[in-house]
Design a protein around this nucleic acid. Structure first.
Lengths: 211, 211
DNA sequence: GTCTATAGGCAGATAGAC
DNA sequence: GTCTATCTGCCTATAGAC
């Protein structure tokens, strides 16, 4: 948590809390990103506009272009900040939990807290819209998933060695299945606006991972 | 397969084949739906326009409005046709396979064939865009998932009784996990344009379901 | 940094001729 | 059924004043 970002996924000292809007924004650029992030997670990159952000922030569209040359640049910045915060959250999980299983439980709570805010995972949303995204954003989305799955794979490897987690197949395959299951459970839970629906899938998943 | 729809998901006589474009379209309305369906699955409901469909079909936007009053009506018709074809595909699976496990394998191949065409599941895509959809489309998306999961739940119940499939928890929960896993695996595989990535997750899932 | 003003394009949609 | 023509509105983006 050294980068000074606001607490992104509601993770604080290993506890899951409702993500609060920062009382004061460090600067306009961050405020833009925070608003745009929520809009993209809720409505998609093709479902929000500069006008939406400008209206909510109380400045004009023209001012947005001062901070981000175009929508593509804004999009890349969104993924970059999101990825950095996600990495922070993963580091916090490692600091707070010892066993691989406990870490996975905490990992699933990141997703749950995002869903609680009526949001989709940013990069899950962008994966759906992938074929409409500018090239720079595409690269960033792939990098996010790579980093995410690499972290999971290492966790699974360690857990397998320590006997604190159980799974069939390779750690790589299991990592992909975990990410896929969580992203998909979020996706399908959205139309139902029902967190418990997501949680039941997670419980099912955790039951299979419990050593 | 009694409705006379074109073979939607590449399922024919229990075999998975590349989904071929129908040689001749029954009428303009169907042609519009076929083109729009592909565009929505590839780019999202907010990522295509009447102009895209009109250009590809070689007619004008105004002609589209004769067949579908507005984008919302077109969207509802898309989900309705997709859902009917999906139901046909499920019926075909039941006709072609006896055991619950074999049926699940065939079920996963529906998703694989969609992904092979660089598409997302139509309703998976719409679930991502859910908060931007008109009310009628939202209802239709939920109904699709309800029907889909009800079919899976019955299959799991039957398989559990016959001992041809294995899972922990309730059939309902397992059904939700299967749908979630498949939708999520499709979603995450998109940025990688790699079917084998999807297939590895499916193999992982099937390994756990094998009796 | 933020504004006003505006460009230029595309969106969904309609009127009315054929 | 399909066309031409057109409307209104929103989109991203830019120029230039303050």
């Amino acid at each position: 948590m050294s980068r000074g970002f606001s607490k992104p996924f509601g993770i604080l000292d290993g506890m899951i809390v409702a993500a609060a809007k920062p009382a004061e924004q460090t600067d306009t650029r961050e405020a833009i990103l925070t608003i745009a992030e929520r809009l993209v997670q809720a409505r998609g990159f093709n479902g929000f506009s500069y006008a939406d952000v400008a209206a909510e922030l109380g400045i004009t569209k023209a001012a947005l272009h001062y901070h981000f040359a175009g929508k593509a640049e804004l999009g890349e910045a969104l993924i970059s900040r999101y990825g950095a915060r996600f990495a922070d959250a993963l580091a916090a999980i490692e600091a707070a939990h010892e066993s691989a299983f406990d870490r996975i439980v905490a990992y699933t709570r990141i997703y749950a807290s995002v869903l609680d805010q009526q949001r989709m995972c940013l990069c899950g949303m962008l994966a759906a819209e992938y074929h409409t995204l500018p090239e720079g954003m595409r690269r960033a989305v792939v990098e996010f998933f790579n980093a995410n799955q690499a972290w999971l794979r290492r966790l699974l490897e360690d857990g397998q060695n320590a006997g604190t987690i159980r799974f069939a197949g390779s750690p790589e395959d299991a990592a992909q299945m975990i990410v896929g299951t969580l992203e998909g459970a979020m996706l399908v839970a959205r139309p139902y606006a029902d967190t418990s629906r997501f949680q039941r899938v997670v419980d099912q998943l955790l039951r299979e991972l419990r050593p």
